[in-house]
Design a protein around this nucleic acid. Sequence first.
DNA 1: AAGGACACGTGATAC
DNA 2: TGTATCACGTGTCCT
Lengths: 233, 233
Amino acid sequence: MYSNKYLSGNLSGIADGPMSVKQTLVLDGEKGELVKASETMGKKIAGSEPKTMAALKSHSDAERRRRERINAHLATLRGLLPISGKMDKATLLAEVISEVKQLKETARPASEGLHVPMDTDEVQVEKLEDKADGGSVLLRASLCCDYTPDLLFNVKQAISDLPGQLLKSEMSTLGGRVKIVFLITSSSAAEELHFSSIRAALSNILDKVSASAEYAQQIIFPQKRRRVSYVDS
Amino acid sequence: MYSNKYLSGNLSGIADGPMSVKQTLVLDGEKGELVKASETMGKKIAGSEPKTMAALKSHSDAERRRRERINAHLATLRGLLPISGKMDKATLLAEVISEVKQLKETARPASEGLHVPMDTDEVQVEKLEDKADGGSVLLRASLCCDYTPDLLFNVKQAISDLPGQLLKSEMSTLGGRVKIVFLITSSSAAEELHFSSIRAALSNILDKVSASAEYAQQIIFPQKRRRVSYVDS
DNA sequence: AAGGACACGTGATAC
DNA sequence: TGTATCACGTGTCCT
């Protein structure tokens, strides 16, 4: 075992391999030189006090146990992650934090109430929680309008044109009204660009839907007016 | 700064503090003794090669950067956790893994409740909360499948054939998948009958969709298998 | 060969 | 007091 190269596992000190003492240089910051370690050492060595020895061993032992605990937890986390491949310890942690965020976002709407479609047509794009963690931003876009048979077709087309990655979409209907909510990840670099192109895509849907809806409406409710509002945040 | 105690920040070696060279003992595993480090050292020291010096510095610098990266991520994770108090690094990780597990657990019913389409085709009919109100029962039916252009047409037809009164329908899409949920009132007398006819109607949709989807899929993914599950409750 | 990632032992420090 | 945690520089492997 590597850890016993300098520090023997048993105090009786049975020779069990070729020995090579290393880590013998000390970098002297003051002079900027390498010096022999012993040069600057005083009495302290005196050699082989068993007390110091035992203390040192238990110290490094404890430290090793600590490392093992941490690494075990890291391994557990690696197993919990959707990503399978081998990973850097730092990148693993980065993945974990993005996982946690994602899960939190996914779990939220359960408690945050439902998106009931209102009476005014609406296109809304907002940014959720920009904690400057890893350059990725979460956008929440929503569209509220009348339901028409071709709505879903238009939506689907718009989705494929959407920038970033679509995490989730949710749609609810009430009466003849419908509200669709999208959750989209965007790179913080292209954030504003995505922002406006999402807005454009959804507004485009709204236009088409409005056209066909207005046609149908004018037959039945010629008096009804259409109110449209665009909201950004 | 502590990190410069042994290794000076500048290679010119300006004296900037009291110096105390430490880490000079080497624990000899073979003999079980402390020895002077220099005892077992040969020529190698020769003193002050600038090459070795620079290499050593860049090495420890890199290692420090790595540590900082990891610790930064750990700090971020600490901030994401519901627990506020100070925490052991290992216990922090333990908390993170339990948090991830819990979020996964919480997110699953949320996903099912919020009707996020999963990867398996599914027809589900269940009875919600029969509070013996007035002989009327609430049924919740859902259909999960690939999205195809004719899906909505089929759904619309099936709806008109449905028994009972359709209270609400909700639909969400993710990727190419779609999940539709119906809320239907039924008389408790005809409950079982409605149950099976709803099942039949949705299964019928699923069959049609599967057919057209499979046709499209066999061109692109000939190996992909369709898994269908029927769930009652 | 130049640099990244990891485990190690050690000094410092808090309780 | 002993017994934890942490940051550090280093050796070693891998690319």
